[in-house]
Amino acid sequence: MTTNELAGLSSRKIASADYPYNGSVVLVTGAGTGIGRSIARGFLEQGALVAVVGRSEAALREAIDGFACERVLGHPADLADPGAPATVVDEVIARFGRLDVVAASAGASEPSRIGALKDGVWERLRRVNLDSMIELADASIPHLRVTHGNFLAITSIAGLRGDWGMFAYNATKAAVNVLVQSLALDLGSDGVRVNAVAPGFTASRLTQERLEDKAFRERLLDRTPLRRVAHPDDIARAVLFLCSRDAGYITGAIVPVDGGISASSGTPRH
């Protein structure tokens, strides 16, 4: 998928279905690029009021471009900073007065190998992928109890299986998957649903260089039954459904959105 193809897909309305998000307040983290940006714009297209969080103010402005200023809130922040998730949630409540959906998409990825773990890699990945998720849930769930809302985490199929040279990243994503299941058990009686979407390799500005490697791309497609690379909008559509009334009896689910990659046992194609 080329850069122009990505831009063309992003120019279309994200979901073909219509969801009743008019007036709902949605917080999307990691919203400056890729999956988080598509999620934010998907909710905005469906009528929601959306707060976007990311480290780059310029990227956040691009994410909410074209939507009325009274419907959006941009908050540049690094959620790995202690206290940042609580500050963000407080600002959302101060601006919009309620919180209906949290879509936690912020994350980080780095290679890692036992016996050769670079300084700080585990701490960074744990802090961004897991610790900040726990802090965000802790800050937002009291408000989601009031609205009988949704907390949705973007994890990865890397949290369901292992990968070569990525043990630290995989461990943090696996932890988030089980965190989601545990929170779903604890919060179900409060009317709060907790789910996760687990994408496979997804095209974005950050992954474009790897996708331009023809050998890597062919190996990836050979493992993908649907024979194409995911676009961020593919992930956003699953999020829109899971946080909607149509998914009202789904909680504690880890939903792979990976073109079928995780259906395989790993046996090579004949």
Rank of each mutant, 00 (worst) to 15 (best):
V102C: 12
R55I: 11
A106D: 04
T87S: 14
V102H: 08
R55G: 05
G97R: 00
L79C: 08
P111N: 11
A77K: 01
D90W: 09
I93M: 06
A108P: 03
G54F: 01
F43W: 07
S109P: 10
A80K: 03
G107W: 02
E70R: 08
D138Q: 15
I134G: 09
V52Q: 05
R124K: 04
R127A: 08
I134W: 02
A77P: 04
Q46Y: 06
R127W: 02
R113N: 05
A116Q: 10
E70V: 15
K118N: 06
D81I: 15
E135F: 09
A106Y: 11
E70L: 13
D119T: 02
V128T: 04
M133V: 07
L136T: 05
P76L: 09
R71G: 00
E70H: 12
F67E: 06
V128P: 09
G66H: 10
F43V: 14
A86G: 11
E110S: 10
G97H: 13
R95P: 01
Q46M: 12
R113C: 03
I93D: 09
T87K: 14
A103I: 10
E110G: 02
L79M: 10
E91C: 07
M133G: 12
E70N: 13
G66I: 06
A48G: 04
R55S: 02
A63G: 01
I114G: 06
D138E: 11
V121R: 00
R124T: 04
E110L: 09
A68H: 11
I93H: 06
V72G: 00
P76Q: 00
P85Q: 01
E62M: 03
